[in-house]
Computed example of a mutant assay.
Amino acid sequence: MSSIFYCSIFGAYLLIVAFDYYIGSSLKYIIINIVRRITVPNYDVAIFAPPYGTAEMTLTAFWVIFTLLSFFIQLKSCCERRNNLDEMTIPLATRDETGAIHYTPWANIFREHRQLRKSLRDSDRASSRCCNIL
């Protein structure tokens, strides 16, 4: 879930930088400042304080809105995919005599894997209970 959130932040920032270019505000200096601190010697001692006016406040508000919007959209699509396991496939495929590709349904493999993990987890819990009793 954290990867979804950080990708949402970065993606929304890239969208805002495109608007920032045409508006002429100073949010683009976030990336420029990071690159300069990495590449220019002794730039880490420089104090850099660009103006933060109305345009920057507006873009920051849109940045937060786009971040939350993309986070919830990705989270919703991720949860929907987990509930619709019968429609999912994995990239394992076979070809028939005509050359057509047939994908293996993922739901059956997932159910077998889930049952195996559950049985292993239950056996680990049982063994840890035995060790705690001794």
Rank of each mutant, 00 (worst) to 15 (best):
A18F: 11
A18N: 06
Y21T: 07
Y21Q: 07
Y22L: 13
I23V: 12
G24F: 02
S25P: 00
S25E: 02
S25D: 04
S26R: 02
S26T: 06
L27C: 00
K28T: 08
I30A: 04
I30N: 02
I31T: 11
I32N: 07
I32M: 06
N33S: 10
N33G: 04
I34Q: 05
V35F: 08
V35T: 07
R37H: 10
I38T: 08
T39L: 13
T39E: 02
V40P: 01
P41V: 05
P41N: 03
N42V: 07
Y43L: 01
D44A: 09
D44E: 07
V45T: 10
V45N: 11
V45D: 12
A46Y: 12
F48V: 11
F48K: 03
A49Q: 13
A49S: 14
P51M: 02
P51Y: 02
P51H: 04
Y52P: 00
Y52K: 01
Y52L: 09
G53K: 01
G53T: 00
G53R: 01
T54Y: 10
A55Y: 05
E56M: 02
M57S: 15
T58W: 11
T60S: 15
T60W: 06
T60G: 09
A61M: 12
A61I: 14
F62Q: 05
W63L: 07
V64Q: 04
V64T: 10
I65A: 15
I65P: 06
F66Y: 04
T67L: 01
T67R: 01
T67F: 03
T67E: 00
L68Y: 06
L68R: 05
L69M: 14
F71M: 09
F71I: 05
F72Q: 05
F72C: 04
I73C: 05
I73Q: 03
Q74E: 12
L75Y: 14
L75P: 00
C78P: 04
C79V: 15
E80W: 10
R81W: 06
R82E: 12
R82I: 11
N83S: 13
L85M: 09
E87C: 10
M88Y: 07
T89C: 07
I90E: 01
I90K: 02
I90Q: 03
P91I: 00
L92Y: 10
L92A: 11
L92C: 11
A93I: 13
A93D: 11
T94S: 14
T94D: 09
R95H: 06
R95V: 05
R95S: 09
R95F: 07
D96M: 00
E97R: 12
E97L: 12
A100T: 11
A100S: 12
I101M: 09
I101N: 05
I101V: 14
Y103R: 13
T104N: 03
T104K: 08
P105R: 09
N108D: 15
I109D: 03
F110I: 05
R111P: 02
R111M: 06
E112F: 11
H113L: 15
H113Q: 14
Q115S: 14
L116C: 08
